[in-house]
Design a binder for these strands. Structure first.
Length: 556
DNA sequence: TCTATTTATCTA
DNA sequence: CCTGTAGATAAATAGA
């Protein structure tokens, strides 16, 4: 069931017979989405997987028309995965590269309407959509672990639908609570974009203490100069370095920096820009991070400071169900590597407590440091010291990330559980230089040192890639499954729970109060489904911490 | 004057 | 010998 915008029309290719019947069919043509709406809903009843070029160009208009389709294949996202994956061979030769590589997110001009669609949308033609889909199916037919790749593409495409819905539905946001919180922390806002009153007070205090009456504390060079003139031998103005100092200016300066950050990143200007109709409408970028995590375009949705989370308030008669996957990355590592010892350590709700029980470390904070050190590639400090025991106790789990690191250091590429492959290292020169040692023998020492360093840097990247990327896949499967389960829920008045937020390993659902317990159950079911889909009968558990709250500030 | 980089701080 | 991953965002400043 393929769909494309072409020459100002909506074209629909509906297969005449069974899926393997390749007879060409004449496309159905509609002048706009409104005209096609009833036909789309009729076809949707059979539960098809819709195929289109780019969800960003289709879903906003479907949502504006009140149409929520269940399943799709986003050919742009699928193509990006398949072209890079080491589990399959992308064919060489002409492949409409310029069409697919040039796809841009449509401009964000408020709510899309039914009428202005054809002008806004430029994308692949229906013929190009069908050709690309056929190409991807051929590639999948001969792929290794094709089932995993298909799961990844389905999850990624479902994620694209979720991202569009999150933006459309928005996150409940209380201007009143946000404004009150800003006023209590920052004081009165300034009329002409100047500093809020509390920041102005702190600025005056800092200027007095440093005897620098014209100092702008937002200017790093000016501030550094002023600190040195006051006799403080600092190298930077970073928080951790300032904290070491014994000087009356430190306290107001640190407070100024913290509040200044809040004012500029999530202050009144942010509120005006991003919140309308009591909803925050963030612009998520699916697979915007190389590891497959999501990114955002403006609005800072993935960096909402804890200070203002209490402004996320459920509507009257509603609740927020906030769930996060506890210690997701180490558990993913245990499942991927089949490390039964680590699986046992994670059999309770707290994997770090399990590490203590295994005698690897003495305390829970040490367990956390050691585990993160293994995932990130720490070699020194406390994490480095704890590493030998971790390696000995969990040889399979730690072996997997060590191997990924070695591969990266050699300039190789690594692949996640479902099949997303890391990019090749950027500067080929560094690898030949390192390379090994043979060809690099006549290079100056400084260049060999640079090469060794970038080799190790890349090793840390590939080490983390396999775990972060596979965790992102689990989270995507969880999210997609939850979306499907939520679609079946509604209260007596036809009100439905809606996904409201997604943050790497955390989801939020905005739901009518009487459905809250069903949503909690759905969140758990979706997690169990994600685990089974990805890892079959793994002994590794993926516990959630779930809270039903009135506002986001009450969660965690 | 406009664009690119640096610095700092926020998130998992 | 090296000194833990992935990002976004804004303001100030450096450079064309």
């Amino acid at each position: 069931m393929a769909l494309a915008w072409q020459d100002g029309e909506l074209l629909l290719a509906v297969p005449a017979g069974p899926a393997d019947d390749a007879r060409p069919v004449a496309p159905e043509r509609y002048p706009d989405l409104g005209a096609a709406r009833d036909r789309l809903l009729e076809l949707e009843r059979a539960g098809p997987r819709w195929v289109w070029g780019d969800t960003r160009q289709v879903a906003p208009h479907l949502l504006a028309a009140g149409v929520r389709l269940r399943r799709c294949t986003d050919l742009r996202l699928s193509r990006d995965v398949l072209r890079r994956s080491s589990r399959c061979r992308w064919p060489s030769g002409p492949a409409d590269d310029e069409v697919w590589d040039g796809l841009q997110a449509p401009p964000d001009e408020g709510v899309p309407s039914l009428l202005d669609l054809p002008q806004l949308v430029t994308g692949p033609t229906l013929a190009q959509v069908l050709a690309e889909h056929a190409r991807q199916q051929r590639v999948l037919a001969t792929a290794e672990h094709a089932g995993r790749l298909r799961l990844l593409l389905a999850a990624e495409s479902a994620g694209a639908l979720v991202a569009a819905e999150l933006k459309h539905d928005g996150m409940p946001w209380s201007r009143q609570v946000h404004d009150a919180q800003l006023r209590s922390l920052l004081g009165e806002p300034a009329a002409f974009g100047g500093r809020p009153s509390r920041l102005e007070e702190l600025c005056a205090e800092i200027r007095g203490l440093l005897r620098a009456p014209r100092l702008n504390p937002d200017s790093q060079p000016e501030l550094l100069q002023a600190l040195r003139t006051a006799g403080l031998g600092v190298q930077s103005t970073r928080q951790w370095e300032l904290e070491q100092l014994q000087h009356p200016v430190v306290a107001p300066l640190l407070e100024y920096k913290k509040l200044s950050r809040l004012a500029t990143a999530h202050g009144w200007h942010w509120l005006e820009t991003w919140v309308r109709d009591a909803r925050f409408h963030p612009d998520y970028v699916v697979a915007g991070v190389v590891t497959g995590r999501w990114a955002t375009n403006g609005g800072g949705a993935l960096q909402l400071p804890r200070q203002i989370r209490s402004a996320v308030v459920a509507d009257p008669g509603h609740r927020l169900v906030v769930a996060d996957a506890a210690q997701l990355e180490p558990r993913i590592l245990a499942a991927m590597s089949g490390d039964e010892q680590m699986a046992r350590a994670g059999s309770g709700a707290d994997l770090y407590a399990g590490l203590v029980a295994d005698g690897v470390v003495a305390t829970r904070p040490q367990a956390k440091v050691a585990m993160l050190g293994a995932l990130y590639g720490a070699t020194s400090g406390e994490a480095g010291q704890l590493m030998p025991r971790l390696l000995r106790t969990y040889p399979l789990a730690t072996g997997l990330v060590e191997e990924a690191a070695r591969t990266g250091e050699r300039g190789g590429q690594v692949t996640t559980w479902l099949g997303r492959t890391s990019p090749p290292p950027s500067s080929a020169a560094a690898w030949t230089a390192l390379g090994g040692e043979v060809s690099g023998a006549d290079l100056p020492e400084s260049e060999r040192r640079d090469a060794r360093r970038s080799s190790r840097d890349w090793g840390r990247f590939t080490r983390n890639f396999v775990v972060q990327g596979s965790a992102a896949e689990w989270a995507l499967c969880w999210l997609a499954g939850l979306r499907t389960l939520l679609a079946g829920l509604a209260d007596g008045q036809g009100r439905a729970p809606r996904l409201a937020y997604f943050l790497h390993d955390e989801v939020m659902v905005h739901t009518p109060e009487e459905l809250a317990e069903q949503v909690v159950a759905a969140v758990h079911r979706a997690a169990a489904q994600a685990t089974a889909l990805m890892f079959g009968g793994t002994p590794v558990e993926f516990p959630l911490s779930v809270a039903v709250v009135q506002d986001y500030g009450q969660a965690k």
